[in-house]
Design a protein around this nucleic acid. Structure first.
Lengths: 235, 235
DNA sequence: CGATCTGTTGATGCCTGTCAAGAGGGGTGG
DNA sequence: CCACCCCTCTTGACAGGCATCAACAGATCG
């Protein structure tokens, strides 16, 4: 079954979108080439679509095929924290026990592969290599979460921004040190525990100091060593 | 082999302590009753002893038998972030790939069991139930790290303190809502991304408002519902 | 009983949030 | 094709929460 998620704007200026299943009698399930032997559904979602709601039961895990996804936690008074940005090849759902604690939303149009949780578990039971891969994956996620705890707990705004730029440059592997940020400034802010305004200010300050060049969502790193120094090179 | 870690104060007022292996020809290895079939060494450490340094190779994982342990990340300029407080029954080392990113220090005198990493892996390969337990453990850790990212990124000082008190009350399972905090105020501060002074101020403020009663390391929760309200009950 | 360390409280300042307004781009409809 | 609208981004003024600096109290220990 191919599930196609369409944005459905709710009344008012709220950006909340709902899932819409399309083509319920569509093409048959595809085999995943990545997690061999595990059945998966292919899912497509437009920009800003909620793919997993914050308190959905955690029946599925997701592998991002293309595009960018954010994991989101919303507090009752509107404060928002973005857990991570997922790019092609990234995986979401390891932390799931009975239900998710973070939702998942499309930052750009995305294609992802959805795995039934229990089938991953069952496959890991039979295949210890795969089980090891899952453990390695979990270890990496834990380390990156720990790095974020350090950043959010003890780093200044400019340090967080610098680290974020270096992280994105590294992950997108862009040539010529030119990063295309798929997410908005407010996404970046909610990822780094800052406000949109502070993100803007730090970016323009770095531009004034000739460390980067900004052109809307395009950011060119002009002085990588200074940027690394700003990031504090403390892991 | 029983390894006994003794504090060894370095010159100056630095609190850095080094491991000292004692009794190298001590009693033979003991069998762990918790992780059946896996060999483990028993380790004892006094207060403030560094059990694992920040960049140690990650050959071992640890199970806390008794006492309290903190995981620590130190930046080059002295800023410190505590990753977590581990109590009896807690486990450390899942996030280890090649080397640790956080060190581990004794908050109180502790006894812990040390497992060779590769023997855990090998056991998980043979025993899928154990592999599942490891995955569940990793999932729980990931969720708690995510909760901390939310707290450090988007919560106020009083919210963090309130959450911390509730967390500790829950984990120590103390009767009568009286918590004995094993760690110092500055440990709490470095755990919550605050300063010692702010932790004190928030605690005394809660005492003025009759939410808690403070007596050095003893804290009694007098009004749990107000405390929960302060914590914002947003997961 | 002094030394030392942790905890507490006060005064002050700064970083970042809040509020506000304008700039710029892209889409849409006439 | 262009005017208009809407949304994101940016910049400025100001305020507030928490950090910093400083001093003192209380506990612990030799």
């Amino acid at each position: 079954m191919l599930t196609d998620l369409q944005p459905t704007r709710t009344p008012g200026n709220s950006a909340v979108l709902r899932l819409v299943q399309v083509d319920p009698a569509g093409p048959a399930r595809v085999r995943s080439p990545d997690f061999v032997g595990i059945r998966a559904s292919l899912i497509r979602a437009e920009r800003d679509v909620v793919i997993v709601a914050q308190t959905d039961p955690a029946d599925y895990s997701y592998l991002i095929i293309s595009g960018c996804v954010r994991t989101v936690r919303l507090m009752s008074d509107g404060r928002r924290q973005i857990g991570e940005f997922l790019l092609a090849g990234d995986f979401f759902g390891l932390e799931a026990l009975d239900e998710h604690t973070f939702g998942m939303e499309a930052v750009t149009p995305v294609i992802l592969r959805r795995y039934l949780h229990c089938s991953l578990e069952a496959y890991a039971d039979r295949n210890s290599d795969f089980a090891r891969r899952l453990r390695t994956l979990a270890a990496k996620r834990l380390r990156s979460e720990q790095a974020r705890v350090l950043a959010l707990g003890r780093m200044t705004a400019s340090e967080r921004i610098a680290r974020f730029l270096l992280e994105m440059a590294d992950r997108t592997g862009a040539p010529g040190c030119c990063i295309e940020l798929p997410m908005s400034r407010s996404d970046v802010a909610d990822y780094l525990g800052l406000t949109t305004e502070t993100v803007c200010r730090m970016l323009t300050q770095m531009q004034r100091e000739a460390v980067i060049t900004i052109n809307r969502s395009l950011i060119a790193i002009r002085d990588r060593s200074t940027l690394a120094a700003l990031a504090g090179n403390d892991g």
